[in-house]
């Protein structure tokens, strides 16, 4: 079976748990110091799907946009994006719209999935969907409540995004 390569960007405010999600999902090779140097760290994970084996290249992009604006070039050619927010921080939910808009400017055909992380710390499912509607417009996207701490839904979020990308 063919091995396809797909690029996934992880976006979200600083501290929402992007790196923890990646750490939970893959066996890492690069040190995390790259976040503080060039603002991105790439990991990979081979996922066996029904249609193909997909090698996911996960671009974990540092969320320090206040001091160091995103290098929007990092979004170029992305096949998928996981936009992460913190279920305990409403401002991180609001920020998803901005990330989405910036991403779509550079990669208009990207497949999207939203994850409300740290679901182990709060009651899930109480969030206002308006922010997501605002971010998505006419598009559709997957949504998950994940916990990098317990591992809940982490695999499912990435696998679903991988399936969306090869459709």
């Amino acid at each position: 079976m063919a091995i396809l390569q797909k690029k996934i960007c992880l976006l979200g405010m600083f501290g929402v748990g992007k790196t923890s999600l990646v750490r939970r999902y893959v066996n890492q090779i690069f040190e995390e110091k790259y976040h503080t140097t060039i603002g991105v760290k790439v990991d990979h994970k081979l996922v066996a799907l029904e249609k193909a084996n997909v090698n996911l290249l996960l671009w974990d992009i540092a969320g320090q946009e206040e001091e160091h604006p995103y290098v929007e070039n990092y979004f170029r050619g992305a096949h998928g994006a996981l936009i992460v927010y913190d279920v305990l921080r409403p401002e991180s939910v609001q920020a998803t719209a901005e990330y989405c808009a910036r991403l779509l400017r550079v990669a208009p055909h990207v497949k999207l999935a939203f994850t409300g992380n740290k679901s182990d710390l709060a009651e899930a499912g109480t969030l206002n969907a308006e922010e997501f509607k605002k971010a998505l417009g006419q598009r559709t996207a997957a949504h998950f409540f994940t916990s990098a701490k317990s591992g809940e839904n982490v695999e499912a979020a990435f696998t679903t995004l991988a399936q969306m990308m090869i459709l």
């Binding site: 790439v42 990991d43 090698n55 290249l57 929007e72 070039n73």
Partner: peptide, 20 residues
């Protein structure tokens, strides 16, 4: 092989970063 995929991404990221 396994590392090469990430190396290529990181090389591109470094190029992008420097250009930025």
């Amino acid at each position: 092989g396994a590392k090469a995929q990430m190396v290529s991404s990181m090389l591109t990221a470094i190029q992008d970063f420097i250009k930025d």
